[in-house]
Amino acid sequence: MQLTIKYFGMLAEATTITEEEIHTDVCSVAQLVEKLKNQYPKLSDKDFKIAINQELVDQNHMITTETEVALLPPFAGG
């Protein structure tokens, strides 16, 4: 299946892209994160949350259909 991955803030800096399409088998959020960290080692020391189709999900959530995946980092600046 095809996933659209969106990177925000410092995650876009770590991957040098803001958005990409990837192909993957059915997997959990944790497995997808692992895969992305392998592809972009600079993501490994970053903290972020995952939203699937604009909804925050936890690590065990299964991704079964074509979806939009967003990686959301915390910001502190003010």
Binding site: M10, D45, K46, D47, K49, L56, P74, F75, A76, G77
Partner: peptide, 15 residues
């Protein structure tokens, strides 16, 4: 509920 734990100290730079 969004970010239960703070990120690692120093991992996010300030303005």
């Amino acid at each position: 509920c969004l970010f239960p734990e703070p990120p690692k100290a120093g991992s996010i730079p300030s303005c």
